[in-house]
Structure formats: C-alpha cells, structure tokens
C-alpha cells in the first residue's frame, strides 16, 4: 500500500501554505491529520505531486470562546474537542458526536478542518456543523471569506472551497436547550449507516427553536427545514415528533451500498432521527 511519490512541504504560516497550493494548482493538496487523505492516496485514488502539511501552522490550532461565539481552529483534533471542558459545557453536542467518530487512535489525529473540508458524505462533522449553523472561514490568495456550512456542500467531494483556499476556522453560537447526535453504525470505527444531529430549545411548554441535520443519507449532509418547521411552535407532542421524523426522512436521499438497500437506510434514518429528537427534548 505505497502511494505515488510526492514532494513534501511544511510551511509555518497560513500565507505560506496558500502560496504553495496556489503555485502548484491541482497537483497540490493540504494534509491535516491525514486519516481520510492517506487511505485514499494508498489506494492511488488521489493524484498529487505536492503535499502541503499544515501541522507547523500554530494559527490553525485551538478553541476560543468569546461570549456566545465559539471559534475552533481547523487543525484542532477530535480528541482535543472531546477533552475541552468549556466547549463541552457550551456546546455539548460536539463531544457527543466526536466520540462516535472512528476510534481513539483516529480521533487523536483527525482534525475538525479535515473532517468538514473532505466532502465525504460519511463524515460526521459536516452534518453536525449544519445542525449548529456554523460558518467556515476560508483563506485564499485574494483574502478571506466566510461560507455557511449549510451552503458549503455541493456533491460528494465537491464543496464551495476553491482549490487554492484553506479552511482556517469554524465558528458557531453556543447552544442552550437540548441536544443529541445519534448514529447507527455496523461497528466501532465505521461510518454512519444513518446519523442525525438535533438541537431543541423550549420556552415554557412550547418549542421555540430547533435544528435538525442528517449525515450519510445523501450525497451531502442535509439540513431539514421542513422537519424544523414541524417542531417549532408546537408542544412537542408525539404527533409533532412523528411529523418531524417523517419530514426529515422525506428529505433524505440515501443510495444503496454495502450498508444496505435504500428502504433499510430510510427505515434506520427514521429510527435515529426519532431517538435524537426524543433525547434532545428530554434534555431541553
């Protein structure tokens, strides 16, 4: 399992990295934790001749909480997300989801930036970021811009990011209320057969705000607007939950693969979405 040969670069600034990927164009790729990219390179499914390693760039690391705004550097690992106490108290859905990704070894090196930039429908963080309505910061040769997670994903492995842009950080608002990330997988270390992230806020007995997003149930993550509309303003009775589950399943568009046929995936989607909504309501 030896990948094709490449030149290795380890710049120490974001500008330096952008310059390299701009100079080498589609022959260059950045590597973060490498735990999606290296397996693809071993299978020789990714042709590149310049690998730009982001590990030396201090400015891409770390988690900061400023009032209600949480900003996470792209090179922050899944392990770092899980053990960060302040993050777990202000947005507990992150650790709940991160703990369901891969296995301990992968979580020590896999980064949030790599997970959301990769564009693999199997990745868990893109759906989670749509649930949180996160904003991605991208930096390219002509400067910096922001793209909402909800409009970032175009198709499997195709995103809004230009080839010469680096995803530098992700930011979102701290969550109140209830939360849940529910994932069905065949075994530890497997990608989701179906997964759902849910946030629910209540004002008295009524649902005042909600968010629902799905993982691996289409070519891209799905933010379920109709399912959210089915919950907001209701008393979250079983009938309301049922209507939201149905709307979310209707929004899914899974394809058949070794995790099962479409009917099975839609069935599992219904189960995980219901579990996630019910757990979020319990915690709200």
């Amino acid at each position: 399992m030896i990948p094709a040969a490449f030149n290795y670069h380890r710049p120490d600034t974001i500008e330096g990295a952008v310059k390299l990927i701009n100079e080498f164009g589609d022959e260059a790729r950045v590597v973060a934790g490498g735990h999606s990219l290296i397996p693809m390179m071993k299978l020789r499914m990714t042709g590149l001749s310049h690998l730009v390693d982001l590990q030396g760039i201090g400015g891409l690391k770390g988690i900061s909480v400023d009032g209600d705004t949480i900003t996470i550097g792209a090179m922050t690992t899944q392990h770092e997300l899980i053990v960060h106490k302040q993050l777990s108290s202000r947005a507990p859905i992150i650790a709940e989801a991160a703990l369901q990704i891969a296995d301990p070894q992968v979580r020590y090196v896999g980064t949030i930036g790599g997970n959301v930039a990769n564009g693999d429908p199997g990745n868990d963080m893109p759906g989670l970021m749509q649930c949180l309505d996160a904003i991605y910061s991208l930096q390219g040769p002509s400067g910096q811009r922001s793209v909402p997670a909800r409009t970032f994903y175009e198709a499997a492995y195709f995103t809004e990011r230009e080839e010469d842009e680096i995803l530098t950080s992700i930011s979102f608002q701290a969550t109140g209320g209830g939360y849940a990330y529910e994932k069905q997988k065949r075994k530890i270390g497997d990608y989701a057969t179906a997964a759902a992230g849910v946030l629910i806020e209540k004002d008295g007995d009524k649902c005042s705000a909600a968010s629902i997003a799905l993982t691996n149930l289409a070519d891209t993550p799905i933010y379920c607007e109709a399912a959210v509309a089915a919950l907001v303003g209701t008393a979250l009775d079983p009938g309301d939950v049922g209507a939201a589950v149905k709307a979310a399943v209707d929004a899914s568009d899974p394809s058949e693969d070794n995790r099962g046929p479409i009917e099975f995936k839609k069935h599992i989607a219904g189960v995980v979405i219901r579990c996630a909504i019910e757990r979020a309501i319990e915690r709200a």
């Binding site: 390693d53 070894q105 020590y108």
Partner: peptide, 21 residues
C-alpha cells in the same frame, strides 16, 4: 491497531502517517 505507537503523547496508527509528517 497492530501498528500503534505513541507519538508526541498520542496513540497513533503508524501505517497512516507519512514518515515526513
């Protein structure tokens, strides 16, 4: 996980790291 090593205080699968990294 048979290739697990401890690298900078983390358990890492050394079959999924380039020597250069």
């Amino acid at each position: 996980g048979a290739c697990t090593i401890d690298m900078d205080g983390k358990s890492v699968k050394s079959c999924t790291v380039f020597a250069a990294q």
